[in-house]
Write a protein that binds this DNA or RNA. Structure first.
Lengths: 268, 268
DNA sequence: CATGGTAAG
DNA sequence: CTTATCATG
C-alpha cells in the first residue's frame, strides 16, 4: 500500500500581503500543501512569518532592495539543510533562489524556489537575466551530479514552446519568449540535463496550461496567458509525479495573484 | 438694491484627481463659486483642465517636482493680470503662489491662492517655511501699498491662536503651531498690516471652525482639527464679507479631501 | 492614513 | 493594471 503523495506547490504571489488580502490564506488551508514555494514575496521577514503562521518551517531570502523579489520555502517537515543563492555571487542578495534539503523516508529530496526576473530587451536587465539563466543551468548540473531527488520550482519567466504562450507570434521579440531564452530551456530539459518539465510531461502536447495572465484588460477571462511557472524535476522524481494542477479560476475561485499556483503530487 | 455677493472659495484638494474621485465635482456644481482657489492640485496642467472643464479661466502654477504642491485660481470672469510666485525667486518653481487681478464693477480686486508647506522642526524644511512666511509678509505689505481690494486665500499651514487647534497643548512644539510661526500671523493680522482673518472675524472668539483633520483614526468624526486655511482680506474688503463657511461634513456630506473648503461671500 | 510618482512586473 | 516603496503631508 502506497502512502499519501508529497504535495509541492509553487506560486508567484506578487506581494504576499496583497495575496493574503485577496484570499490566499483560504487557498492554503484547503490545498493541504506539504512544501510551499513562493516567489515575489515582497515583504520583510517578520511580516511574512506573521502571515504564514507558526506551523511551518520557513526559509526566506529577502532581496536587498526592500519590497522587491523575495523567495521562500515553507514546509511542515523540518529541512536538514538550507542554502541561499543560485551559485553566482552577483545574485546573492537578489532574493531569487533558495534551496532546502529534506530526508523523505530515507531518500534525499532537494527543493528549490526560484524567481527569474522578467527581463527587458535592449536593457541591462536582459543581460542580467541571461547571467541568471547561465547560473541556473550550472546549478541544475550540480544537482544532477549530486544524486537524489531534486526539483526546481518557481517563476522562471520564460515560455519554452509555442504551446506555452497563447499569442506566441506577437511575442517572439519580447522578453520571456526570445529564441535565446527558449534555447536555455531546450538545454535544461534535454536528456543529458536529466530534468523534466513535470506539468508539460503530465499534460502532454496541448496549449497551456498557463500560469500567468496580465492584470490588463480581459487577459485572465480570455485565458490569454503564459506558462512561465515550472516544476523541473530530476527524471526519477518526475516519473513519480502523479498529478500537476494549475489552480486557476475554475475550481479555485479566488485569484490572489497574477500567477496561479502550480501544485504537483509526487508518489515517493 | 445690492447685487449678488462675490463668492470666493479656497480648498486644499490634496490631489485634484483623488478629490474628483471622491465627489468634488458635485460640491463645485452645487456651490456656485465665482472664484475658486485650489492648493495641492498635484496633477499636470492638461489633467487639471480636463477635470475643471472649459467654462472657467484657469491660472495654474505647477511645481517643478511632478505630483507635488500646485496652486490655481479658476474664475468665470476673465482676470486682467496674472502673476506667479510670492516674490522670492527661490520659490518660483514651487507651485505655491498665484495671483489674479480682476476688475469688479470698476474696482480692482487681487486674489491669491497660496500654499505654505507644512514644515518639520529641526529640518531644512522648517527654514524654508520661515523663508516663505517672510516672503508672504513682504507681499502682504506690497498688496496693501498697492491699494484696492486684495485677499490671500489658501492653506497657510499655521494655526494662529489656541482657538485654532483642538489639542493645542500637545502641539506647541510641532510645526504648524510653533510660537515663532504664530508670531508671523500676529504681524500679518496687525492693524499696521491692514489684513483681516475673515473667517475668525465673522465667527468671533470661538473654537474653530477647523479646516483640516488628519486622515488617521477618528480625527474627522471627533472634529479634532486645525484651522490652517484662511482668507486674509484687506480691511476694506473684509468689512464687506457677509459670510464665511467651512464646508465640512455637516451639510456637505462628501469629504473629498483632508481639508474642507472655506467659502466666503463678499458684498462688493 | 492618504496623495502621486516611481520601478518593476 | 497591480505591487511595494518613497517623500510629503
Amino acid at each position: 500500500m502506497q502512502g499519501k503523495p508529497l504535495r509541492i506547490a509553487s506560486v508567484n504571489v506578487n506581494g504576499i500581503r496583497a495575496a493574503y488580502r485577496r484570499g490566499m490564506e483560504q487557498w492554503l488551508e484547503q490545498r493541504d500543501v506539504d512544501i510551499l514555494c513562493l516567489q515575489e514575496v515582497r515583504a520583510p521577514d517578520d511580516v511574512v512569518r506573521s502571515l504564514l503562521g507558526q506551523d511551518r518551517h520557513i526559509h526566506h531570502a529577502e532581496a536587498e532592495a526592500r519590497g522587491r523579489a523575495g523567495v521562500l520555502i515553507a514546509s511542515r517537515q523540518e529541512p536538514t539543510t538550507l542554502r541561499t543563492g543560485v551559485g553566482d555571487s552577483y545574485f546573492d542578495t537578489a532574493g531569487r533562489w533558495v534551496e532546502a534539503d529534506f530526508d523523505h523516508h530515507g531518500t534525499s529530496l532537494t527543493v528549490v524556489s526560484a524567481y527569474v526576473h522578467s527581463g527587458e530587451v535592449g536593457t541591462p536587465k536582459q543581460d542580467d537575466k541571461y547571467r541568471f539563466l547561465d547560473a541556473l543551468g550550472a546549478r541544475l548540473a550540480q544537482l544532477r551530479e549530486r544524486g537524489g531527488y531534486a526539483v526546481v520550482t518557481g517563476d522562471l519567466n520564460v515560455g519554452h514552446t509555442t504551446r506555452d504562450i497563447r499569442n506566441w507570434k506577437s511575442n517572439v521579440k519580447k522578453a520571456g519568449f526570445l529564441p535565446e531564452e527558449r534555447a536555455y530551456f531546450d538545454r535544461y530539459l534535454s536528456d543529458e540535463s536529466g530534468f523534466v518539465d513535470v506539468a508539460r510531461s503530465l499534460a502532454g502536447d496541448v496549449d497551456g496550461p498557463y500560469t500567468w495572465w496580465s492584470w490588463r484588460g480581459k487577459a485572465f477571462d480570455n485565458d490569454t496567458g503564459w506558462r512561465i511557472d515550472y516544476q523541473l524535476a530530476t527524471t526519477d522524481l518526475a516519473a513519480r509525479a502523479v498529478s500537476a494542477d494549475v489552480d486557476r479560476a475554475t475550481g479555485w475561485d479566488t485569484r490572489f495573484s497574477d500567477h496561479a499556483p502550480l501544485v504537483v503530487d509526487y508518489q515517493i
